[in-house]
Simulated assay, not measured.
Amino acid sequence: MIDLARRVYDACHLTGTFTLRSGQTSAEYFDKYLFEGQPALLRDVAEAMVTLLPEGDVLAGMELGGIPIATVMSQLTGLPAVFVRKQAKAYGTMKAAEGGPVRGLRVTVIEDVVTTGGALLASCALLRSEGAVVDTVVCSIDREQGGRENLAAEGLELRAALTRTDLEAHL
Rank of each mutant, 00 (worst) to 15 (best):
M1N: 08
I2H: 05
D3Y: 05
D3N: 05
D3C: 12
L4R: 12
R6Y: 04
R7M: 03
Y9A: 08
D10A: 14
T15P: 06
T15M: 05
T17C: 04
F18W: 15
F18S: 04
L20E: 14
S26K: 09
S26C: 09
A27V: 10
Y29G: 07
F30A: 02
F35W: 15
Q38L: 07
Q38W: 06
Q38G: 01
L41R: 12
L42F: 11
V45I: 07
M49H: 06
E55Q: 13
G56V: 04
D57V: 10
D57K: 09
L59W: 14
L59F: 08
G61Y: 11
M62H: 04
L64T: 15
G65F: 00
I67Q: 01
P68R: 10
P68D: 13
M73K: 08
M73F: 01
M73W: 03
L76A: 09
T77N: 03
G78M: 13
L79S: 01
P80Q: 10
P80M: 07
A81Y: 12
V84W: 00
A88K: 14
A90Y: 04
Y91R: 07
Y91F: 06
G92M: 03
A97G: 08
G100K: 10
R103Q: 15
I110R: 02
I110N: 00
I110F: 05
E111W: 13
D112K: 00
D112Q: 02
V113M: 03
V114R: 02
T116V: 07
L120P: 01
L120A: 15
L120R: 00
L121C: 05
L121V: 14
S123F: 00
C124H: 01
L126V: 00
G131P: 07
A132D: 04
A132V: 07
D135Y: 00
D135K: 01
T136C: 07
V138G: 10
V138T: 14
C139K: 07
C139P: 10
I141F: 02
D142F: 10
R143Q: 06
E144M: 07
G146F: 11
R148W: 12
E149D: 08
N150M: 01
A153M: 09
A153H: 12
A153R: 14
L156M: 14
E157N: 01
R159N: 08
A160H: 15
T163G: 06
T165L: 00
L171K: 09
L171H: 15
L171C: 09
